[in-house]
Simulated scan of single mutants.
Amino acid sequence: MNVRVGVTAVVIAVLLVAAGPVATVTGAATAGQRQSSPFAVQQDRIDADEVRMDVALRPNGTAEWTLEFWVRLDDEESTTAFESLRDEIRTDPANHTQSFADRMNETVSTASNATGREMSADGFDVTTARQSLAREYGVVRYTFRWDGFAAVEGDELRAGDAIEGLYLDDGTRLLVEWPDGYERTSVTPDPDDERERAVIWRGGETDFVSGEPRVVATAAGTGPSAAAMAIAAVVVGGLAVAGVRWYRTRESTTAQPAGGDDALDSDSDAGTEPTGGSGTASVSATADESADASATGAPDTELLSNEEQVLRLVEERGGRMKQQAVVEELGWTDAKTSKVVSGLREDEKLESFRLGRENVLSLPDADDERTNETSGDGAK
């Protein structure tokens, strides 16, 4: 059994799928064409049961790549094959990284031409390990450095264009991590899982289209980020509301006659009808404000939490609205909105689903209410 060749073939298959344009260079399937099982190999070779692609971004745009192939060691044949491969790699690792490096350099070169950004790859290495989780696995781990993977624009890192349209098969995941000291600005499409400084997409759950995946992260504390600008807007809005209230209070106070009943009589003589004695103007102003509040039927947004503001918006839209509309309505960043929405989903106060390329938010009982209404109409 040629174990080494089998795993190398798997690695090459991953690279061909990960970089569509390379397919044209190598004579394989054309860009965008998908293989039904790109990680499967012949019976006399090892099949990877799980593939993990981890991309760690650096402030200068370099990405540290880790590509892992996990093989279940659930019988004597697979265990023997993996141990044989492990011995070969330990004896001559360079022999195992050469084909990988050749294919990856082609991938990087094509991505460089497509993005117009200078790129290169180096630092190729391969190691093996055994991992015991719920079951025993053998792991073949390739690592390398991809310079120029992400675009650096001021304080922003923009990553993903080098692997646009990447196809994730079942059992495959992609993790993108941004540097310490950076904040997530936007991620497209919505990730299947999130960590403190990383997002994860899994094959079978996410299908990247043109322009995806995309991750934008901004260096924290280096200038007025989008989040800081949003906070400033809220503060300015709060000051404006306070100013209006002060003005109304001042106007209502000024409108009260200083001469008591005589002044009211004078106003009455002048054609102004008194409505109830001294201080009536102030009471009327307060009544007007109460009427305004009653008319809207909604509390001041300053008194609502972030979660309550989102739920209120969705309720006002009939129980459903696009997540991007929440961003626009509240003036928040994509990152802040996503964080609040994720919390509401965990608390089961909100649900979401994909509609095309949009993320739609829905109240848990929205569909039930519509179903009940439809049933009621039918009964009538």
Results as ranks from 00 to 15, higher is better:
Gly165Asp: 06
Thr66Trp: 00
Leu133Asn: 13
Ala379Tyr: 05
Ser132Glu: 08
Val244Asn: 05
Val235Gln: 12
Val244Leu: 12
Val215Ala: 12
Arg34Ala: 06
Ile200Cys: 01
Leu350His: 09
Glu77Lys: 10
Leu175Met: 03
Pro299Arg: 09
Val41Pro: 09
Glu88Leu: 06
Asp102Gln: 10
Ala48Met: 04
Gln35Ala: 12
Asn372Cys: 08
Val17Tyr: 00
Ser362Gly: 04
Glu358Asp: 14
Val216Cys: 05
Ser112Gln: 10
Glu76Ile: 09
Ala233Trp: 08
Glu83Tyr: 10
Thr185Leu: 13
Thr97Val: 15
Thr30Met: 14
Ala298Arg: 15
Ala217Phe: 01
Gly223Pro: 12
Glu77Leu: 10
Arg145Trp: 05
Glu289Met: 11
Asp170Ile: 10
Arg317Tyr: 02
Gly211Val: 04
Arg184Leu: 15
Lys322Met: 11
Ser252Tyr: 11
Thr62Lys: 10
Leu304Gly: 03
Glu164Cys: 07
Ile231Pro: 04
Ala151Cys: 11
Ala48Glu: 08
Asp347Ala: 15
Val5Gln: 07
Val139Asp: 03
Glu346Ile: 15
Val327Gly: 01
Thr80His: 11
Val209His: 01
Gly32Arg: 00
Thr172Gly: 00
Ser36Ala: 07
Arg90Gly: 09
Ala150Gly: 13
Phe149Thr: 06
Thr97Trp: 08
Arg250Gly: 14
Asp193Arg: 13
Ala379Gly: 03
Asp47Asn: 08
Trp201Glu: 02
Val71Thr: 14
Gly154Arg: 04
Ile46Lys: 00
Asp75Cys: 04
Ser284Arg: 15
